[in-house]
Each structure stands twice: as structure tokens, then as C-alpha cells.
Design a protein around this nucleic acid. Sequence first.
DNA 1: GAGACAAGTAAACGATCGTTGACATAGGTA
DNA 2: TACCTATGTCAACGATCGTTTACTTGTCTC
Lengths: 218, 218
Amino acid sequence: MGNQVQESKALDGGATFADDELVRSGRDADVTRRALVRAARRRFATEGYRATTVRHIAADAGVNVALISRYFGSKEGLFEACMNRTVDELDPQTRARASSVDEVIARLLTHVVEAPNADDPLQLLLLLRSSGDENADAIRRRTLERFTEQLAAAAGWNADVPASQPLLLRAQMAIALMLGLVMLRTATEVQPLASASADQLTEPLERVLRVLLDTTEK
Amino acid sequence: MGNQVQESKALDGGATFADDELVRSGRDADVTRRALVRAARRRFATEGYRATTVRHIAADAGVNVALISRYFGSKEGLFEACMNRTVDELDPQTRARASSVDEVIARLLTHVVEAPNADDPLQLLLLLRSSGDENADAIRRRTLERFTEQLAAAAGWNADVPASQPLLLRAQMAIALMLGLVMLRTATEVQPLASASADQLTEPLERVLRVLLDTTEK
DNA sequence: GAGACAAGTAAACGATCGTTGACATAGGTA
DNA sequence: TACCTATGTCAACGATCGTTTACTTGTCTC
């Protein structure tokens, strides 16, 4: 057989992310742009960069495919916009100087395990899923490194050296732990981790993260 | 612009996995099959299922594309063969009983950071990447849960309760850390983690893993 | 209300994907 | 030697991808 499935049929295949809120009532380019980024982030996070098609994204957002090229230049540009928005939302929380390592850790845990917003963990997945696309991966890599520096800076608030390489490494280990955790919980859905409550996770995670990030601890 | 890049040119784009060893001298279907699985595993692990093309795999293995359909039915069939082989190779090592937590940790570190065989970490990536295929993901999930139980049993060798759920959770956190680490090091290639030496990683990782797995420690 | 410009759509293009059927060739068998 | 089957190659097919061009439609200003 060939690649089958008519192009028209392909769009209703799989769960169609109906973009409930953020209805585009009138003609507003900004609203449309946000709707596209919103739809794209969910697709990219859950299905990966290469597997998501611009036609799916446009259908989720309820607009024509051509608008992606018009507003973001290309699929790659839309992906970069998604990453930038994720960083922007992650930034104020990591940038805000913490008064203690405990506060940094608490902030991380809030994002990953408590997850007040259901889309929060998906944003992290966006940082982990490699695409196979060379430029998209470069964007991802650069974003992760920026995130690392901010986390290390926040953790080393009381360290004498501002950003030693061992600290950067430990910060990235913390990130690796959190990313792997989200991956196993939401994508692979391995048990009992996937259905574990936040209470069960916070205590051991706190201890581990303190070992990695606390520069004062022996 | 369009999708650019001539089809003939595309094949030498990116790092071409020259399949050094396992040269197919004569005409041997078994040897060819193994060469294909070998090349496919590296591509699938580093670039993901969707981003890997059968033409790349065939080029890596040094054979014609048509043989993939002939020997494995389809790209999906080849992926399933890769998974089966990975499970077969991972099983005996996790099944072997460890005598102490330190030994378990040492074993984990050997697999992930020291990596005597360059393909070892890539096998782990195969367990993490979702394919979109329902059956493949089920196999993946079941394998991870089995791996968790064996790791928890090995870690709790001196604990009074054999396999408490908190221990299972901590074991899966350890797995999450290792998988995230391999992901960031080999797929995303984020710095400085990707180019860090084994020496730089073992010390902090040992401490973290002991916190997670050592049931005697306070 | 008429025009103008932005916002959105429809249809198509070229490229690449996975797959296939017809053909070539090596190596063992009669 | 002549043949025959397993093994491998080649060229093409249909589908789908991201992108672009030409067009339509809404909305605001004068």
C-alpha cells in the first residue's frame, strides 16, 4: 500500500484539539496569531515537531493554513514563537530572584508536579522532544541552555562564584530529572508514577533537588 | 521557497551513519536484516520515529530502500523489530540480582554515562520516544514498569518491606533522571552537559541516586 | 457610499515521503 | 552447462508535506 488516507480525511483523524476558548469573533491578526501559537504548542508537545502538520495546527486554530506562513514565515518560525512564549512564561518565575534555594525548588515542583495549569507540563515537553529538524533543534538547545543559566544563577544566589561549571551541570541534571519525570508521567504514562499524587512526589523530589542545587550543603 | 533539497542530495545531509563493521560481503538476507535493524535503531533513537526516513536507514545499511518493505513489511515493522531487539538485550542485565545498592547505582552509571558501548544509551532512548503506534507504546510502557520493579527490588535488598510503593516511585524517579540525562546529552545535545566527561557526572549522580535508592540512609 | 487596505481563503506547486512491481544478478542445484 | 530461486536494484506511483500565488472578504476612513 501507499501512504493512503486522503488529505481531507487526514485532518479529522486523531483527537482534534478544538480550541474552546479564545474564539476569533472578528478579524484580528493578534488574536489569530495567539490562537495559532496556542494550538501549535499543544500539537508540538504531544506529538513532536515532525509529526505535527501545519494543516492540523491551522484546523485546531480554525484558520487557513496559509496564515502560518504569513504570520510566522514558516512552520519553523511558528515553532520558535512557541518556544519564545514558553520561555517568556517560564522566565519571570526563574528570573525573579529567589531568597533561598528552597524557594527555587518549591517553584520547580509547583510547575512540574502540582501543575495548576494543565498545559504547564506540556510546555516542558516542548523543550525535550527532539524534532529531527536541524533548525528546530538548535532553537530548543539554545532555549534549554538559557534556562539552565537562569536556574543556576537562582540556585547559586549565595555562592561565591557566580556560575561555575559544576553548578551548571547540576542544574542541568535537575532539569533532566524534571523533564524525564514529565515525560514518563504524561507521555509514556508509566505506573505508578503517572497516577501518583503530588504529595507522594514532593517529599523525595525536594530532597533530591536540594542535593543537586544547594551549594551550601556539605 | 518549497521543501527544497533534491532527494539525492538529502541523503548526504546530516551525519551519515556509516555502518563500519558488519560489512555485507556476500548475499545474505540475515546479515542484511541485522544491518538494517542496527542502522534503524540509531536513527530512531537519535532523530525519532517520524523524522527518520527509510531511505536514510537503507543508505546507512548500504542497501536499497525496497528491502525494508520486503524484510519487515513496512517502516513500522522495522521499528517493532528494533524494539524487540532492545528489550532482548536489556532484559538479562536488569534481571541479574545485585548484592548492594552501590552495585545497582554503579551499574546504572556504567550504562548511562560511562557507556563502554556507544549504542548503549541510545537503546534507552528507544524506550522513551513515543512513536504514535499504539502497540509499540504499550510494549514500551510495560518494559519500563518491569524495569522499575527490578530496580526497586535490587535497591530494597535490605529493606524490611519488599516493594513498597514509595520505593517504586523513587526508583522511577531515578529512571526518569537517567532517561532525561541521556535525552539531553545525546538527542538535544545541550551544553555543557553533552560534552561533560564521565568523571564530572559520576560524583553528583552517585549522591543523587543514593538519596533516591538507599533505604537505609536517614 | 466608495475606495483602500488588512485579514483570510482557495488552489496549486514542487519536494519528499513510504511503498511497490518489474527487472537484474549472484550462487547453488540438476 | 543450463536453470532456478533467493537476493538486491531501479524507477515510478500515490499521498502528503510546507509553502506560495492569486483571489475574496471584511472593516475602517474619508
